[in-house]
Amino acid sequence: MNEFIEKKPGENEATGTFIGGIKDAVPTMIGYISIGIAAGVVGAASNLSVLEVGLLSLMVYAGAAQFIICALLAAGSPPYAIIFTTFIVNLRLFLLNMALAPSFSRYTLFRNIRLGALVTDETFGVASGKLLAKEQISDRWMSGLNIAAYISWVLACMAGAAFEKWIANPQVLGLDFALTAMFVALLVLQIQNGQTGKLKLYLTLVIMVVLSMFVLCAFFPSYIAIILSTVVVATFGVLMDR
């Protein structure tokens, strides 16, 4: 590579190529393989076949929701209740994608739909971390990130379901903590790469979310507490940031 060749925005190796996206997906993949196996074990324990677990992870592709769907199916909940709960649990993705979508508006509608369909908490976190560091991200990079994460999730879920009987309690190894650790890293990345001079504001928001989660979790299921805390505290953020 000749460093004097002028590169178009989003054309650099790190955030311009499909391979670059796959490389940036590695931490997400570690998390997904760990949690995916656990999700597959839970699915099989809820009397789903390997194929059903595969379809669930292929079509829904959302970790927290999949655990809840399995629990509700096992409990014999009515379909409309399961589907409505899934909708509420995944509404959070609407908020995330509202923040991410403007970076891809230069691409075609079809490409946008394809990119949006595979965004998760984690791939969103990786992408918005790049954006905060003022790096241009391209559609190919985002596809690489999305697809690497997607494939590792689906395969891990199916492996978990297939080998359910042989897998010891995944909690023993600490693997179930992988995604929490990932969220910790993504939060730190957001705060470190955020606008300078806003550290105090960000830390105030963090404390407010912690407090509101404690209060709201006493009254609501946790997935509702997550959305409510986020919406309310982000609004305070706008009011305080003058």
Partner: peptide, 15 residues
């Protein structure tokens, strides 16, 4: 929207 990631990741960790 720029405050959403910090809030959501904090909420997921607390959860």
């Amino acid at each position: 929207l720029s405050f959403i990631p910090v809030c959501i990741f904090t909420a997921l960790i607390v959860n």
